[in-house]
């Protein structure tokens, strides 16, 4: 297989949401053909640079998935399947990226705030950011404000992503930002927020740096922010 061909196949299978050969894809009849895991290994064996795999195999594909989701051709499980593909590929690629000396774009702490157990959207964002070259530290869901602030301090993170899916917990995001100010950490970290009830207006109101509608927008917003 040519290098270009294997990268195209990786992208195709991310869009199809096929982690392993036995998996079904978005389209019918793909079972048994090599999928993202096998193709990523194959690309590495061929000597394709891990960074090219990330950019041309994974990132490009997720752009397409994002478009399809926006156009409502793809549903939530389709996006989750594609995100799982990126996660599986990144697990294989990260050691190779480190070995190749590819620098992280910065530490990104991500968390669902206290009182809120929703983590599907947050998990997708985390996978996408990993694929985008950030060192992601995922604190999980229902994380106490103090722990989030402590993590920012401990890791000296450049970015903090906060998620809330409830109108009752979105306010907690403001509390996290207040606490960061109290601790003198607010100027060192860019705060991005997201989740169904939030908005740009809300981000402004609580003093966040940006609101991101979805994982794809988060990537775009980050491009405009210097670490």
């Amino acid at each position: 297989m040519q290098k270009q061909e294997v990268l195209e196949k990786i992208a195709f299978n991310v869009i199809q949401g096929r982690v392993e050969a036995e998996d079904e894809g978005f389209d019918e009849g793909l079972e048994g053909r090599p999928a993202v895991t096998e193709l990523t290994e194959e690309a590495l064996t061929q000597g394709v640079h891990p960074k090219s795999i990330v950019l041309e195999g994974l990132t490009k594909a997720m752009d397409v998935v994002g478009e399809k989701f926006e156009e409502e051709e793809y549903l939530i499980p389709d996006m989750l399947a594609s995100a799982e593909c990126v996660g599986a590929a990144m697990d294989i690629l990260i050691p190779h990226l480190l070995k190749a000396g590819v620098e992280s774009k910065g530490k990104f702490i991500i968390s669902t705030v206290a009182g809120d157990l929703h983590d599907i959207g947050k998990n997708i964002v985390a996978i996408m950011l990993k694929g985008g070259g950030y060192e992601v530290i995922d604190l999980g869901a229902d994380v106490p404000t103090e722990r989030i602030v402590e993590a920012v301090r401990q890791h000296q993170a450049a970015f903090l992503g906060l998620s809330a899916l409830l109108t009752t917990t979105m306010r907690v995001m403001g509390e996290v930002i207040e606490k960061l100010k109290e601790e003198g950490l607010r100027n060192n970290v860019k705060v991005l927020i997201g989740g169904a009830p939030t908005s740009s207006e809300f981000a402004k109101e609580i003093g966040a740096d940006s609101y991101c509608k979805n994982a794809f927008e988060a990537i775009d917003v980050l491009k405009t922010m210097a670490a």
């Binding site: 949401g17 079904e24 894809g25 978005f26 549903l75 499980p77 399947a81």
Partner: peptide, 11 residues
């Protein structure tokens, strides 16, 4: 897995 066959039939 990921509701593939279901969504393929009914999307």
């Amino acid at each position: 897995r990921y509701c593939r066959r279901y969504t393929r039939a009914f999307r």
